[in-house]
Simulated assay, not measured.
Amino acid sequence: MPVRFARLVIDALLPPLCLSCGSEVAEPGSLCPQCWSAMVFLGDPACTCCGLPFELDAGDGVVCGQCARQTPRYGRARAVLRYDDASKALILRLKHADRLEGVEAFARWMARAGGAMLAEADLLVAVPLHRWRLFARRYNQAALLANAIGRMAKVAVEPGMLVRTRRTPPQGHLGHDARARNVAGAFKVAERLLPRLDGRRVVLVDDVMTSGATVDECARVLLRAGAASVDVLTLGRVVREG
């Protein structure tokens, strides 16, 4: 009863707001009906490897054209939302605007989307920021998500396992091959944590997967350092037409 009363008092003074548009909602960490209906949640049917959604169910084990042409280093990638105009505002509030109240809700969504891989995982690892970018932003959104998912899924977390060794230029204007060149050699495993990685099944956590170049390079580094397998779990992913 005291907890419920305290919640009523807090909601009266600071009513919960939609994680996307900021309008009042009934529950903290939720979206208003209009924003919820605008989100495109991803799921099956999808590429068995990268999770790219398919319009039609082509059966089990089918991969997309990109994965058929060049198999990623990671085993599976799954995401919650299509990264588009509707979800972009939601994710950028987390990434750049110090709006961290959505972390728990996002982590719950991600834990559901990645349930199969999390059930098999030994370790969660966050895609790192370069130290100067981390200093400017003050937090790594991928690490916050990994920590929250780890608590929910009861999987160990090592957000500092990967280190970004150089500050890569922005990739927004780059194509797939240019992105791959941009991040090549940009990550390493923290030497003090190498024993924690040996033989572990890793789930790599990030906020958005665009071309997949960053998570693929991270997977390469983790596998080379001794991980048994690497899967990828993100909040959003870009879905290119055609």
Rank of each mutant, 00 (worst) to 15 (best):
V127F: 04
R137I: 01
A105H: 02
E55S: 13
G61H: 05
W132C: 02
A97I: 01
G65H: 07
E104T: 14
W132Q: 14
A86C: 04
N140W: 13
D84G: 11
W109A: 14
C49Q: 07
L123A: 08
A86G: 08
D60M: 07
H130Y: 14
Q66G: 02
L118F: 03
V127H: 01
R138V: 10
L123T: 13
V62G: 04
Q141C: 07
C49F: 06
L129Q: 02
L123F: 14
F54M: 01
F106A: 06
V103E: 01
P53N: 05
Y139S: 04
R108L: 15
R138K: 15
F106K: 00
A58R: 14
G65N: 04
R93E: 06
K88V: 00
D84W: 10
A116N: 12
E101V: 13
D57I: 11
G51E: 02
Y74H: 12
A77R: 02
R138F: 09
A121D: 12
E104V: 13
R133L: 00
V125L: 08
D122Y: 10
L56A: 13
V80G: 01
G75V: 10
L144S: 01
G102S: 09
Y139T: 03
A142V: 01
T71I: 05
F135D: 02
T71A: 15
R78S: 09
L94H: 02
A113E: 04
Y83Q: 00
G61T: 07
G114R: 04
L134G: 03
L145C: 09
F54P: 05
A89E: 09
L123Q: 10
E101D: 15
D60H: 11
A107R: 01
A79T: 11
W132F: 13
D84R: 02
E120Y: 05
V103H: 00
Q70T: 11
L94E: 00
L100P: 08
C49D: 11
R69W: 02
A116Q: 14
A97S: 15
C49N: 08
A116I: 07
Y74R: 01
A126I: 05
G115Q: 15
R138C: 07
R93P: 07
M117N: 12
D98Q: 15
Y74K: 04
A107N: 03
L81Y: 15
L92W: 05
I91T: 11
P128F: 10
Y139V: 06
A143C: 10
H96K: 03
G61V: 03
D57H: 08
R93H: 14
A126R: 03
L123H: 12
R76W: 09
L124P: 11
A58S: 04
C50M: 08
E120F: 07
R78A: 12
V62L: 10
D98T: 02
W109G: 06
G114N: 11
H130P: 11
A113F: 10
N140V: 06
Y83I: 00
G59A: 09
R69Y: 00
E55F: 08
H96T: 11
G51M: 03
D60E: 15
D98L: 14
R69P: 00
A136G: 06
S87V: 09
P53I: 05
F135E: 07
H130S: 12
L94A: 00
Y83T: 00
L129G: 05
A126C: 09
L92V: 10
W109M: 14
E120I: 06
L144M: 09
G61Y: 05
Q70S: 11
V80S: 01
V127R: 00
H96S: 06
E104D: 15
R73L: 12
R82S: 02
F135V: 05
